[in-house]
Design a protein around this nucleic acid. Structure first.
Length: 301
DNA sequence: AGGCAGGTGGCCA
DNA sequence: TGGCCACCTGCC
């Protein structure tokens, strides 16, 4: 995997708790795991756990999912644009994050950019999450002048249910604070609800998620794709709306129709296809911003 | 410096 | 159903 693709995997909108380090490595937190990862000299992935173990790491990186097999099963042979996206990001992965944490992160995501979502989530963890014990040997290098960094887990839903909405707003959540507070209250009243939902088939799980305040189709699909390994979930956001309009000539299609198109056209691993398309469009967006390429035509709604 | 941002829910024809 | 708008507020 290239450093590019690693960055896109960790920081491309699936997860919001990875921070780039000065040495081109990344440090990420999920559950009570703290892990450093980078691309080695031979292009292999190197990781070390400051907290947590190998089982947690391999699970998180989707080792059980056979992503290469799923990628090959995508209809790239008959879809030139998809083929181009896959070729541009070889080895791009769908992470297998924790269900409850993914729900929390995507409840923060409504009409916010990745940087800001990361800020909200970081504040939630620092102010309301538990501090994670980190092995002493990994805490800063010997002779380093910088103090040891503290790492915090995200607050559990149980904990979130005890936090006043006002304090959630202080974590830059804005109107999302109400959704999170209400969802927390609801989950507190129904122990086991999350675990049951996670284990349901895609359609039923999505229906249940959509019953939570602040969770619509898009967020439900993100939670199922990134937090439950349901690769058929096909989140339709403004980027995908734009991509499908531009690259598949689907101007004026509404999200619900695009969602159907996605599943019909891309098949059982539509969510993986979505991630490739998304990565392509993001890279293009950055190039436009840098003036490397011309801006694409605007789309009609 | 001010518009905009990876949505959702509610209200209206 | 389909369209429109309020909801918060920190960043680029």
């Amino acid at each position: 995997m290239s450093t590019d693709v690693l960055a896109e995997t960790l920081d491309g909108g699936q997860a919001f708790r990875w921070t780039p380090q000065t040495d081109r490595s990344w440090i990420g937190i999920w559950g009570r795991n703290v892990v450093r990862i980078r691309v080695g000299p031979a292009g292999d992935i190197e990781w070390s756990a400051l907290a947590g173990d190998e089982a947690a790491v391999t699970h998180y990186f989707g080792a059980e999912a056979d992503l290469p097999g799923a990628t090959d099963a995508l209809p790239w042979r008959s879809d030139a644009h998809l083929a181009r996206c896959i070729q541009a990001f070889p080895g791009l992965r769908i992470l297998r994050q924790q269900f409850g944490e993914t729900l929390l992160c995507f409840l923060c995501s409504a009409t916010k950019q990745i940087v800001q979502i990361k800020q909200m989530v970081a504040l939630l963890a620092e102010r309301h999450g538990e501090r994670i014990a980190v092995a002493a040997a990994d805490r800063g290098r010997p002779g380093s002048a910088s103090p040891a960094t503290a790492y915090y887990a995200l607050p559990t839903w149980e904990k979130l249910a005890t936090i006043p909405e006002r304090e959630l707003r202080d974590c830059l959540l804005g109107f999302r604070a109400k959704y999170i507070a209400e969802t927390a209250t609801l989950l507190a009243r129904h122990p086991g609800w999350l675990a049951e939902t996670e284990n349901l088939p895609y359609t039923q799980a999505k229906e249940r998620l959509c019953s939570l305040p602040g969770v619509g189709e898009k967020i439900a699909d993100c939670v199922l794709l990134f937090g439950a390994g349901k690769l058929e979930a096909f989140p339709v956001d403004v980027w995908i709306l734009r991509t499908l309009a531009l690259r598949y000539d689907l101007h004026g299609w509404k999200p619900a129709a695009l969602s159907q198109f996605g599943r019909a056209h891309f098949g059982a691993y539509a969510g993986l296809a979505q991630q490739f398309l998304f990565a392509w469009e993001r890279r293009l967006g950055r190039s436009v911003a840098q003036g490397t390429v011309a801006a694409p035509p605007s789309i009609s709604r």
